[in-house]
Design a protein around this nucleic acid. Structure first.
Lengths: 321, 321
DNA sequence: ATCACTTATACTCCTAGAGAGCATAAGTTA
DNA sequence: TAACTTATGCTCTCTAGGAGTATAAGTGAT
């Protein structure tokens, strides 16, 4: 073990990049900020001027996009060899999840909001399991299963696919976004898997039809998957949804927001019961009748709960897991 | 937004360090591997030869300590300005949690296993709330509360302290390890808070008596807190405990291991019920009578559950939260 | 041999919370 | 006025999880 803080000669120069998964929910769609023809996540260099990584990200995002970043959380740090840049220098990417409200009309650097289900169409189960799993994914998965070396390996692959994609009466678990992406990647059903690493085409690896869903540069789609998974897990025990809501909202709007993120429907009475009995919100006294039915009460998030409670003590009724 | 992958001129040279929180549980104590007179966590440079960060850490740890690393998980990436090394170069620290079984007699670089409660004595509630919270912590906390600018701020501080340390009929939540450390740090009850940043002694900041617990170099104690918190959260829904157990074990040994990590007692009948009804273990047919009572059946972890189940579907009876 | 003690293991009871369904209220639009 | 939409309240049921109790099967001391 190398005793700190003597600077070892083995240390090499490395560049650090910040990559952001910026999420907003607009009119019932979970959206993510993209650049470069919607094929990349916004990223920028980590500069010496920044006090810390988190403040570096905040400063950079708010300067570039003028978005007020409500909630920021570190996701994961990558440093794969493929990511070395033109000079051969190692690039470390530190990815962050950021939540914000609504989208202003930002137009710089062709930044665009895009529904995240465009990149992961199999993740949207709000109207039940999407048919595209059976139609577009299953054949490729079958081919991957059959391509395993022996019977035991085939059984393992089948079991893993069934568990992750909710096949053969496995229940759908919306949190396993990253694992599903990694399986599809491993099964060469993701276009990104064919780039860079040319060893991928050895042996009996036939090129299988790509899974639906828009690809991204480098490993940005994996980073996005990480962000979605983290957010889906987080909303169950931490009141972060409110960072995505306007100041006042109806309970149905809140529910739609949660459903958009979780990618599954929520039982309406239970949802209201949970929100209200936890006293996460308070009435504003006003009502909204945007939706042509009985006017709904408007609510506002009780920010004080963040101080009152142990921060891990809130729950949303998403069965899953 | 800066379109990748053009290398921006604003990128500066940075060194990347890997820091490991290596955990083992021996004879009922949760231990962590330390170096430098038990004042630092093992760390090493990230080298170009490594395929990825994770494999870099694995290779380096296994080479230096000859420990078989069962489970590895990334914790957090730090890059605070204080961490700049002698040359003024930014140092990014990527911290990892690693689980291993037992300790061999490794003696290199004065590496030693040490009980993690030596660094966080207030975290051990296995025999009820430790008296040292009332005796050694409470006075300092009171002083910090009283030092707030106005009544509202005082109330906020009191509430936060009560929530985190289980005072004033708040329940103890064993997962909030990091938040507790950060509060003590902020309250200047942690010796590490007095180093480096000399601005800390402005205004009415009196030097309060330090909290008990062995300090560490740099922010290593914070990293350790992060690791403990992550592990305490993880054992509740993922069967990682078994990475810390020998091949065969009794249910009581397993329970003691969980209790050591969680820092609280567990209801024995409920624990056994949960473990058995989830079919996490299988009998070996043998029995153990190390403990001078009725011989206990020996069990073994059913590794297949990792494939069978969605990995998030296991639970341990730790009320908390 | 008996007793005290330790540990293992099996049951029962209770309650809070989550899932699901139904009923009613109060608006809108055709 | 009817049909439809959305809001809101209530009930029922099931189960997981928390807590307590009882019995079994060993050890070591008197």
């Amino acid at each position: 073990m190398d005793p700190r803080p003597t600077t070892s000669s083995a240390e090499h120069d490395i560049a650090a990049d910040l990559v952001a998964v910026l999420v907003a929910v607009t009119s019932g769609d979970p959206r993510v900020l993209t650049i470069q023809d919607q094929r990349a996540l916004p990223s920028g260099p980590f500069e010496l001027a920044h006090r810390s990584l988190q403040s570096g990200l905040r400063a950079w995002v708010e300067r570039q996009t003028r978005l007020p970043l409500g909630y920021v959380e570190q996701l994961y740090t990558f440093a794969d060899r493929d990511r070395a840049d033109a000079t051969g220098k190692h690039v470390i990417s530190i990815s962050y999840l950021g939540l914000t409200r609504e989208q202003p009309a930002l137009g710089e650097h062709e930044a665009r909001w895009r529904c995240w289900y465009d990149y992961f169409p199999w993740e949207d189960h709000r109207a039940g399991p999407p048919p595209l799993i059976e139609q577009a994914l299953r054949p490729g998965l079958r081919a991957w299963i059959a391509a395993a070396s022996d019977r035991a390996a085939q059984r393992g692959r089948r079991q893993r696919a069934a568990m992750l994609f909710g096949l053969e009466d496995h229940a759908w678990n919306e949190e396993l976004v990253l694992q599903r992406y990694e399986l599809l990647y491993e099964a060469k059903l993701i276009p990104e898997a064919h780039r860079g690493n040319s060893q991928a085409f050895e042996l009996g690896d036939t090129v299988r039809p790509a899974a639906p869903g828009k690809p991204m540069m480098l490993d940005h789609r994996r980073i996005l998957a990480t962000g979605i998974a983290r957010l889906r897990a987080k909303i169950k025990y931490h009141p972060v949804v409110f960072e995505l809501m306007p100041d006042t909202f109806t309970l149905l709007q809140l529910q739609r927001c949660v459903e958009a993120l979780a990618g599954r429907q929520v039982h309406k009475p239970n949802f209201r019961r949970l929100i209200e009995q936890q006293e996460l919100v308070e009435e504003t006294g006003e009502t909204s009748q945007e939706a042509g039915g009985r006017p709904a009460k408007l609510f506002r998030f009780r920010r004080t709960v963040l101080a009152e409670r142990a921060i891990s003590g809130t729950k949303l009724p998403i069965s899953g897991a």
